[in-house]
Design a protein around this nucleic acid. Structure first.
Lengths: 158, 158
DNA sequence: GTTGAAATTTACCCCAT
DNA sequence: ATGGGGTAAATTTCAAC
């Protein structure tokens, strides 16, 4: 993977596709001031470089029955690298865990977990997380409501 | 907005588009066992109903210079609804705050914040968050690494 | 850029209920 | 009559040259 160096047009392409991942290449090209073919070449290059990792529809979680979002703050007994990796490997196998971030400070990991309801969540928590080896403490907080959920990162408007 | 009732085909469409938001409608139609036109009608209906909220390219944050992800746990002095709304309105104006979830328990909000570096983050934190009215306490944790970051929710395979 | 191939979109028809 | 799927044709987009 090569070093990524982007000019202004690349940045605008990234911003536009983050905002609307289904924008047609023709519209994208117009917006950034190119004709379609070079614009598409840039998009493909950005994908190959890994600047664009994929495209995803943003679903309403409730539409698929996931009415509960929970944040779990996990502390481990051992923070040896192999133990950290083992925990990450564990959460990778739990589909309801959508995100796993390793943090500094007393809390080792924060997980974002979705579940249909409180019962399902408690089931996942007690059978898969709190009983896992090396897990010292799990503190969970239910999401009451989400007021902001933007994708990715801010993009400079130009 | 009407009540959402989905059959198996709708669920499969949602799952496939969450996984690949740029899948062509003809491929999508093949995968779910329809021809293109009725498939597209279903997609448009799902968009209108709000089951699909949008499509986004997943960018590598580092590509745009955002090398730091931070979680901020915020406690307010007053949890009156108007004060909660006021805080949500404040964070809505800060582009680096990508997510804002209201939680139960002592922590009122968890924010996901991105920044180019620690200096920029401290600047945002001290000028926009900790000094805001009604903010009692902000505890921040830096992300060391992110081992899992899946979009949306699990989708039943069929 | 240009052009052939492919995808999208609209309109219309059919079938089932 | 209504709703969902299929067929066909026009337009747009894609991708190779």
């Amino acid at each position: 993977m090569e070093k990524m160096r982007f000019d202004d047009i690349d940045v605008r392409i990234l911003g536009l596709l983050q905002d609307n991942g289904r924008m047609t290449n023709v519209e994208l090209a117009e917006r950034v001031g190119l004709t379609a073919p070079p614009c598409l070449r840039r998009v493909r290059a950005l994908e190959l470089q890994g600047a664009i990792n994929g495209y995803h529809a943003a679903l309403d979680p409730g539409a698929l029955g996931y009415n509960l979002t929970v944040f779990a703050m996990v502390s481990l007994k051992s923070q040896a690298e192999s133990d950290l990796r083992a925990f990450e490997a564990l959460v990778a196998t739990i589909p309801e865990v959508r995100e796993c971030h390793m943090l500094n400070g007393e809390i080792d990991f924060i997980l974002k977990i979705v579940a249909p309801d409180l019962q399902s969540f408690q089931q996942i928590l007690t059978t898969k997380l709190t009983t896992a080896p090396n897990v010292e403490h799990v503190k969970t907080s239910l999401t009451i409501r989400t007021s902001k959920a933007l994708p990715g990162v801010p993009v400079p408007e130009m």
